[in-house]
């Protein structure tokens, strides 16, 4: 199996997952309840991807000051609540993370 074949197969799969359910010919009618439910999808997915990166070190739950990801994420949460500006939040968050890594 060539690498290119695998790449195109995966690309088609990813594209289908993004494209298919927006197609008008697909008989898919969403009730109010379904729409309400789907409104929770983005925060649910983004949190579920980010949380393990933040809280798990060496396959263990780590809530101490020695977990730089955990501490810097606290900083990110505070800045996000104060500024509501994504770029400022991410830049200051990355800076505090690097600071923690090199100076503690």
């Amino acid at each position: 199996m060539t690498t290119w074949f695998i790449l195109f197969s995966v690309a088609m799969l990813v594209f289908t997952s993004r494209f298919l359910l927006m197609e008008p010919w697909l008989p898919l009618k969403l009730s109010d309840n379904a729409q309400q439910l789907l409104a929770f999808s983005a925060p649910a997915v983004l949190t579920a991807i980010a949380a393990p990166i933040v809280f798990i070190r060496e396959k263990q739950l780590c809530l101490g000051m020695d977990n730089h990801y955990f501490v810097a994420s606290g900083v990110v949460v505070v800045i996000a609540m104060m500024t509501r500006n994504t770029l400022v939040t991410v830049v200051l968050g990355m800076a505090s993370f690097q600071f923690l890594r090199y100076f503690t």
């Binding site: 925060p43 980010a50 990166i53 990801y69 994504t86 968050g93």
Partner: peptide
């Protein structure tokens, strides 16, 4: 620690969207 950039981006996206108790 580039994986922290992923987490920081997603946190920065989620926090401002938490406007109600259900969220």
């Amino acid at each position: 620690g580039l994986d922290f950039a992923i987490a920081a981006t997603f946190i920065a996206l989620v926090i401002p969207s938490i406007k109600t108790t259900p969220l």
